[in-house]
Design a protein around this nucleic acid. Structure first.
Lengths: 106, 106
DNA sequence: AATATAAGCAACTAATTGGTTGCACAAAAT
DNA sequence: ATTTTGTGCAACCAATTAGTTGCTTATATT
């Protein structure tokens, strides 16, 4: 099952989890307390987030602490980067992107 | 049907469309030529992108040109902003986020 | 030693997704 | 006036998603 960062952040619950554990590593039970769904459902989301490496695990006894992987978040930022020129109105820079794409197509 | 920017960019085909029309407004037919799927399938993606306002339409005769809405892309950037501190290693700034979240919880 | 707790896994389900084909309609070309 | 072209919409379908409950296993607690 190929996991994708963009697909991972598509779900609002997962985005909420990301925000939650960005601040501080948390166990599945602790995370589940913040949501109106079963612990297993949260666990499933954590699995998806882990699979695409947005989240790291650290075991401590029988507890597992989940923590955000900031580096992987940068991947989204990197994708956005190519459009940033758009809303900054620097269209000459955008032309470079255009050229890159065209050369790749051939 | 509630459309969400994050859900919209989750699909790789839609991200490719976004990249394509970021450069230049295009008609559905022209876009479809770049993909190995029917024009109707592409049209469906365009509908989703339009519904969440990532894409704008402009009619010209019987042709409709689709164009990226840079402003809406900023919404993703805005969400990322709160995590940017993470990978920049500025954890004292992050603490502020923590306090904000905690105060909202109460 | 017995019990309680934390977590993962599997099976099931309803809803959603991403594609298809077929059709309708308006605009352009013949 | 007829045909071709560009587009959207609806019905259908297989695969995936996001939730559920029930079970197992490992670690703490009593």
């Amino acid at each position: 099952m190929r996991r994708d960062v963009f697909q991972a952040i598509a779900d609002p619950t997962r985005r909420a989890i990301i925000l939650l554990i960005a601040v501080q590593a948390m166990t599945p039970n602790a995370i589940a307390e913040h949501f109106d769904m079963s612990r297993q459902a949260v666990s499933k989301h954590l699995r998806i987030l882990t699979e695409c490496e947005l989240v790291k695990q650290e075991q401590s006894g029988r507890e597992i602490f989940y923590q955000l992987n900031g580096n992987k978040m940068q991947e989204i930022d990197k994708w956005l980067e190519q459009f940033r020129k758009l809303w900054e109105g620097r269209f000459n820079e955008l032309d470079k992107v255009l050229l890159t794409i065209k050369s790749k197509k051939k």
